[in-house]
Design a protein around this nucleic acid. Sequence first.
RNA 1: GCGGAAGUAGCUCAAUUGGUAGAGCGAUAGCCUUCCAAGCUAUAGGUUGCGGGUUCGAUCCUCGUCUUCCGCUCCA
Length: 480
Amino acid sequence: MATDNNRFQAIISHCKEYGFIFPSSEIYEGLSAVYDYGQNGSELKRNIRDYWWRSMTQFHENIVGIDAAIFMHPTTWKASGHVDNFSDPMIDNKDSKKRYRVDHLIEAQAESLEAGGKKEEADALLQAMDALLAESDFEGLKKLIENNKIKCSISGTSNWTDVRQFNLMFSTQLGSVSDEANEIYLRPETAQGIFVNFLNVQKSGRMKIPFGIAQVGKAFRNEIVARQFVFRMREFEQMEMQFFVRPGTQKEWYEYWKEERMKWHLSLGISKNKYRFHDHVKLAHYADAACDIEYNFPIGFKEVEGIHSRTDYDLSQHQEYSKKKMNYFDHEVNQNYIPYVIETSIGLDRAVLMVLSEAYEEQDLSTPERKDSRVILKFPPKLAPVKLAVLPLVKKDGLPEIARDIVNTYKKQFRCFYEEKDTIGKRYRRMDAIGTPFCVTIDQQTKEDNTVTIRYRDSMEQTRIQIDQIGKIVNEAINE
RNA sequence: GCGGAAGUAGCUCAAUUGGUAGAGCGAUAGCCUUCCAAGCUAUAGGUUGCGGGUUCGAUCCUCGUCUUCCGCUCCA
């Protein structure tokens, strides 16, 4: 475990050193649990996003994509249950570390007062609490707790933290401040953007059930503790697909998508034993089945993707709150129903971390004569930020010009990188460190017979090929 | 959020019992022209995380704060 932790730290350092992921606002000492993607990280992330998008919308005829706004009507979050469930004032006892909902704590005290025959005191306490809660007067609530000498049942002390509001949604104002600005939330999940557009997409696209709507986008959760690098961030990106099915068929579609999504993961070249399914025992209020696909990160098996059978909960809720019929008439069975939903939801940032964790390798290349090592990112070529490095062996004798020509030929097809500084070995190692799968080197012989040396990242093998073969080799690898 | 630890150059670290910081690697420029990093020369980079306090003087002592790590807690 110690070595795994070192490995995780090494990956984080490597990400920073080679332009993959930086702490946000670092010159101002950073912002907790927020990260920026650098020149290589943003390419990697984009490649993963694009691959997922193609896998969903291009490889499945009956799945279409949308891109909904981050701002949504406030009622959305009432319908989804987010507003009610996650905005309670809480207080911690510093001695027992136990956290209480403030209303529960005070109510418990009132009950014991009443049991002790002090009903009037109990009523007064509850009345005071309601007044303070209504005004969100947290200081007043703390004083109320202190003045009534309410104790923690575990530690028996009254050593309390301040009262804090635990609202996992970020809020902001829509509209000018002087007017009656509406408080709105940054979406805590992208799924609702799909549900509220269900009718739009179904009708405008003449979609027939079963069909899916895919979306990639940012979501925001004000996690109390967000840690472990990009694994748990306050601002993160989700890749979600909601698949609408006929009621009663949700179990088989759930199984179908479990299998289908696992296939996608394996297509990243990651071996099966690095994954496992984790079935949820305790289900969320909207689900009738749920599981996670967990990847064996250096910090252990952790969720990368969730597959949930969400029933008709979301569409029904939106129907109730919006008064718009969410029905679908199914001509095959002549039935009118609210569709059931199977959701696949993968964290893009977690997928990036997964691909990085899988790719990162420190290799010892020492020979009896001398010590040698390299750090390599063994990305699948389709995900690599740079596909091809073009390197003149020396920067004279016309070799740079030939190299530039090669770059100009291929840069329209895939991302190329030109480099003439330093020895060829150093340049190869730098490309290993950012995961470039192919390097070609131009030397004196190139001028005679139009051949170059192609060097493969993983095997370090080198062979001589014709210049016009480069495109075929690279394209075949990245389209695999 | 609680408890513990840490923060010095891009990275890894050093230093001063309190007297305003050095090295290696890396980077940049040049030399060399060589198919797997660590040949040569030169150059650039630090208000020692930030802000108070004590002191003639703080990177060092002290308080606060931010960030990170470890453990707990939380994670619809």
